[in-house]
């Protein structure tokens, strides 16, 4: 099953490679990983999307917790939470395609952030499925580039990491 694990770790050189190294050394899956400093610059927040059996997920949580740089960790899969991912996507759009693309962006509540005579660049946020759906909706259009941030998530309500 797919799990979203969110962690706070010391914002120190090498902390990221400890996490990445753990996943490769123990042959765990990473679907996506995103990391950036938090409001407290000494801490980074990392979101990992991974899959595995319940036993493997339990081990992943324990092994991550065991890393000396990891301050706190939550597997938010079981909690009510919000997931978001940002996608930047650049397509070829000429003539009639331009209206079609604009219409799709509106439907998906995205924004056009750059335009040239032949291209549109758009941003879209949502959960992974919505982004996939948008890419699919563009199937008749030539896609030049797709950049996805990897998923981030936060629990709803008062619970906080």
């Amino acid at each position: 099953m797919r799990h979203i694990i969110s962690l706070l770790l010391e914002n120190e050189s090498g902390a990221l490679s400890r996490v990445a190294g753990l996943f490769s050394a123990r042959a765990y899956n990473i679907e996506s990983l995103s990391v950036a400093p938090t409001d407290d610059p000494s801490l980074s927040r990392m979101t990992i999307v991974t899959t595995g059996t319940e036993e493997i997920i339990e081990q992943i949580n324990k092994q991550l917790n065991k890393l000396i740089d990891v301050v706190k960790l939550i597997d938010m899969t079981g909690d009510v939470h919000v997931e978001r991912e940002l996608m930047l996507i650049k397509v070829n759009a000429t003539d009639g395609e331009r209206d079609e693309v604009k219409r799709l962006v509106d439907i998906f509540h995205g924004r056009v952030i750059d335009v040239t005579d032949t291209t549109f660049t758009m941003e879209i946020t949502g959960d992974g499925e919505k982004l996939n759906a948008f890419v699919q909706a563009l199937s008749s259009i030539t896609i030049l580039e797709v950049v996805r941030s990897g998923l981030i998530g936060i629990t709803r309500g008062e619970k906080a990491l």
């Binding site: 050189s13 090498g14 490679s17 400890r18 190294g21 050394a25 000396i68």
Partner: peptide, 16 residues
């Protein structure tokens, strides 16, 4: 050294 030893230590440090 920090990279090479990372998988075989409890923890490691580079003094900066």
């Amino acid at each position: 050294s920090v990279g090479i030893t990372r998988p075989v230590v409890k923890h490691n440090f580079l003094v900066e």
